[in-house]
Computed example of a mutant assay.
Amino acid sequence: MASSEDATRCIVPAVTSRFAPRQHPADDALRRHTLQFCETRFNTVARGKYDAAAGGYAEVGGRFVSLLYPEGEEERVQVASLLMLAWVLVDDRIDASLDTDHINRILDELGDAVWLKTPAREPEYHIIADFFGRSDWEPGTLRRCRSGMESYIDGTRVWRAIEITEKPITVDDYMNIRPDNLGWDILLPLHSYVAPAAAAEHRAAESTDTYRAIYRDTGTCVGIALDLGLVNGIRDNHTAWTNIDAILHRSAPKGRSHQDAVDEAIALFHGLEERIKANLTALESPFPSAAAGLRNVYAGSIAWIHELRGRRYAAVDT
């Protein structure tokens, strides 16, 4: 990562949620499946494209989906774990580049894989195309998840352009773009694939203002947790300009330190969780399954980031 100003002097404590995570009953089996897949196939795919050790890919697949989708059907959760591996590798390659043409080629190939437009040229896109080409999709859920991946592609084009050109942005800009850029619009509706009985309710919930507010706030909180995990990080990513701490530091009055910005980001995280709690309660009455699924994806994401501090992300400071 390209470090923010004074990043080495910052103390970044654990960023944990008030919402308790759950894990899938088949957590051990999901982890073993990912480890085997990495050892037999995926580490070879990642080699030469990104540092597999720094990427922590053995923890990206099974453990990630176990925490996000604890009520999902085991077979569907397992195949979703392979999507996560390939997609995170694609995302890592994007974050490690400052070449706009290269980034756009990666995103174009990702879109082709999602929509099965052309035969995939590289193995990670084969994995993604295999997932979106499965026969067990309900058509409405497939359309929704594909559109969610398009949101990621569009948001990432915008986000990387801001990073490369060092365009000034506000916290409000961050809250509007960062959730799409981190893939929130695919991670949430993917619940409808792994738990198809909840699909109709989830789509109905999405049309409400309450859901949209939760989407923005939870996606922002996940972005904050991810960004703070990169402040003192070792991965060779070019994301410092758009990290929440850097945005807050640039907008702060003269004399405020980078540490003050980190502390402000943590305060923003906990303040947003107050609003998330109220909105989840409001959503729960008409849409209990959707609210539970959203809570699980959010709490699981924050827990997973925390678990990988010291591995994929910088260690927790005490």
Rank of each mutant, 00 (worst) to 15 (best):
R9Y: 13
I11K: 14
I11V: 15
P13L: 02
V15E: 03
V15D: 01
F19Y: 08
P21T: 02
P21M: 03
R22S: 07
Q23F: 07
P25E: 06
R31S: 04
Q36W: 13
E39W: 10
F42A: 03
R47I: 11
G56Y: 08
Y57S: 00
V60T: 15
Y69Q: 03
D91W: 07
D92P: 00
I94F: 02
D95K: 07
I103E: 08
N104V: 09
N104L: 09
A113Q: 09
K117T: 15
K117E: 14
K117N: 15
P119F: 05
A120N: 06
Y125A: 05
H126Y: 12
D136W: 09
C145E: 06
T165I: 09
D172P: 02
I177W: 13
R178W: 04
L190F: 12
S192E: 15
A199M: 06
A199G: 06
S207D: 15
R216M: 11
D217W: 11
D217P: 01
T218S: 07
T220E: 05
G223K: 03
A225T: 08
G229D: 01
I234D: 14
A240L: 01
D245L: 06
S251R: 12
R256S: 15
D263H: 09
A267P: 01
L268D: 05
N279M: 07
L294N: 03
Y298L: 00
S301G: 04
S301Y: 04
I305G: 02
E307G: 07
A315H: 07
A315Y: 05
